[in-house]
Design a protein around this nucleic acid. Sequence first.
DNA 1: CGACTAAGATATTCTTAGCCA
DNA 2: TGGCTAAGAATATCTTAGTCG
Lengths: 99, 99
Amino acid sequence: MESPFPTRLRAARKAAGMTQQQLGINLGMDPNTASARLNQYEKGKHAPDYQTAKRLADELGVPVAYLYCDDDVLSRIIIAVAVMDMSKKESLLNYILNN
Amino acid sequence: MESPFPTRLRAARKAAGMTQQQLGINLGMDPNTASARLNQYEKGKHAPDYQTAKRLADELGVPVAYLYCDDDVLSRIIIAVAVMDMSKKESLLNYILNN
DNA sequence: CGACTAAGATATTCTTAGCCA
DNA sequence: TGGCTAAGAATATCTTAGTCG
């Protein structure tokens, strides 16, 4: 029942090659508070509201649902689907439903 | 940037055929507060913490990531994947990565 | 009955001000 | 530099006590 958010956030930030502070600043956070806030999110001390989670996801290039995903296989599927355009996603959905 | 949580929660609750209060009680909430809390979540007045979201998802039979998903096609893929067993999920992931 | 809401009580996050490797 | 943290300030949710259709 532990939140997957801290781990997913860290994985996505590392993949994007940013520091905690840099990521926060890119979201428009005060440079003086960005470091503390991001660290609190990644260490699981605090959880951001949805709007902040969405902006984090956008900045990191992952779907916001990925950050909350507690299933590792599903999380990889979400990442793989993220790079598809709309019609490819719809084709995949039809493939799943018909097999 | 509006949270998808209220809409996804309502869709899943309706699909499960429960009232707001009933769902809250099933999670172990005080029957006196279950109605107000669930209504606040569905109307978007307040957002629950992750632990509560996870218990809601489990009770409703959807992946917790579904409740936070802002992409309609992806949300349907998440629901379709949810009914698969582990090996079928892994097969699907391989299919996606190799096509 | 089921959905919904205001407002105060309560619990959370955010900011400040740092330390540690 | 980058990661991290305690504690008070600020802001959020939860509970109470209802209304409305």
